[in-house]
Nucleic acid binder design. Sequence first.
DNA 1: ACGGTGTTAGTAAGTATTCACTCACACCTC
DNA 2: GAGGTGTGAGTGAATACTTACTAACACCGT
Lengths: 191, 191
Amino acid sequence: MSTRERILDAAARVMRERGVAHATTKEIARAAGCSEALLYRHFDDKQGLFMAVLQERMPAFALPDDAAGTGTVEGNLVRLVGGLLDFYADSFPISASIFSSSTLLARHREAIAAHGAGPQVPHLRLQAYLEAERKAGRVRPDADVEAVARLLVGAALHHAFLVAFWGEGNAAEPGLGERLVAPVLPALLTG
Amino acid sequence: MSTRERILDAAARVMRERGVAHATTKEIARAAGCSEALLYRHFDDKQGLFMAVLQERMPAFALPDDAAGTGTVEGNLVRLVGGLLDFYADSFPISASIFSSSTLLARHREAIAAHGAGPQVPHLRLQAYLEAERKAGRVRPDADVEAVARLLVGAALHHAFLVAFWGEGNAAEPGLGERLVAPVLPALLTG
DNA sequence: ACGGTGTTAGTAAGTATTCACTCACACCTC
DNA sequence: GAGGTGTGAGTGAATACTTACTAACACCGT
């Protein structure tokens, strides 16, 4: 693994485990097993390093390839929500830390706007899946798919928030995906 | 207004507007219009001041008094979700900042555990309302009220997250409460 | 009424430490 | 020997926190 990658891993680890406030250059260098000076060979400054972590060490949000029309809507939704729960569990600690600095937030916002990425992507993707199912006739034509997408994505985010707050202890909650999907099914399914 | 209150207001304002990273003692003192030394007359240390802000300047989450059995379930839920949207819109910026420091998070967690407060309160309260309605026979006996509460609370939190990320611009979204409540109604209402 | 005594509210000017960041220099490979 | 990779030893600035001090005010015995 290249030094740059080691530094990025170390920085991400410190940010996750101790919070951005403690993610000092000294702490990151110690975690990466190198000198502080070396950080500056690979990154312009500390904010540049943070930005690289945000862009290269945020867990990718990959919804499984569009399964619209295959399997059952319920099964697909459960799988998608499971992916959302994992995604937010991994990304929430670092995402939240962005809000600790207005300047970091502003830079991140600009960087992200350029890529078409951003925090609205998950619910837009889920919404797109539901729209495809609606087009396929497996979801009621009058269903508010945007609202449903927001409910499901929100519940996943909320769960990550609680886990991050209370510590790693109560992380996995088996069957949560199924339980979250069930209440919105009557509003979705053609009947 | 007492000096202590002025300092708390100033600290909360700086934390909100510029983020905890920029909430230095100097900055807070300047915002409060006093000397840094005075901060230490009223608080043990900076973390103590932050803790006081978290405990005394977080917007109170007040669900309107238990309306179970009155009005319509839909109307009550819309009102409750509206309250949640306001609550999270106000509290998210400061809540998120807790995660910037593992030690601050740990202290806040302990302080909160003592009060029986914490981030699980909103969805427990909403869940309690739904259970009351179930007992009153206005919600299906087989409805998963916990899952529904998590969906609605999560969607409100998610909305606050997006607003905090993109700036104050796209804050109010009229009719959002109604749209979020509608998809869970079929799973709740007795038919 | 008046001086003495203590308390409260406030600050200017520090100190020690930590922070992000730099630089001169060493080591290595080609 | 040139250029990439790496470091020890710093630097000035910023930070959290302290100290020594003042002005205002309340209380009280005489």
